[in-house]
């Protein structure tokens, strides 16, 4: 059992923040590594962030429409 964090990734040196467009998984959902969990939007792109490991979503720390900085923990997965 390990707790793996999904963080808002670096998206190039000019992007400092992104908006949570959609939460595709919620607390308690089972996810496989590589499965899409959150859709984020920057001014230029919309992209899906994938589960870093297979397990269960322990908690989701952001809400839809929230603007978050690079590095922010978005969700925690328990393997």
């Amino acid at each position: 059992m390990a707790r793996i964090e999904l963080r808002m990734p670096e998206l190039g040196n000019e992007i400092t923040e992104a908006q949570i467009d959609a939460l595709l998984k919620g607390t308690g959902d089972k996810v496989s590594e590589g499965e899409e969990i959150v859709t984020i939007t920057t001014p230029k792109v919309t992209m899906d962030l994938e589960a870093p490991a297979t397990g269960t979503v322990l908690e989701v720390l952001v809400e839809e429409d929230e603007i978050v900085a690079v590095g922010t923990v978005l969700a925690v997965i328990e393997t």
Binding site: T42, P43, K44
Partner: peptide, 10 residues
Amino acid sequence: LSPLKAITLR
């Protein structure tokens, strides 16, 4: 305002 919060030129 951040470009995520306001209409941009794009």
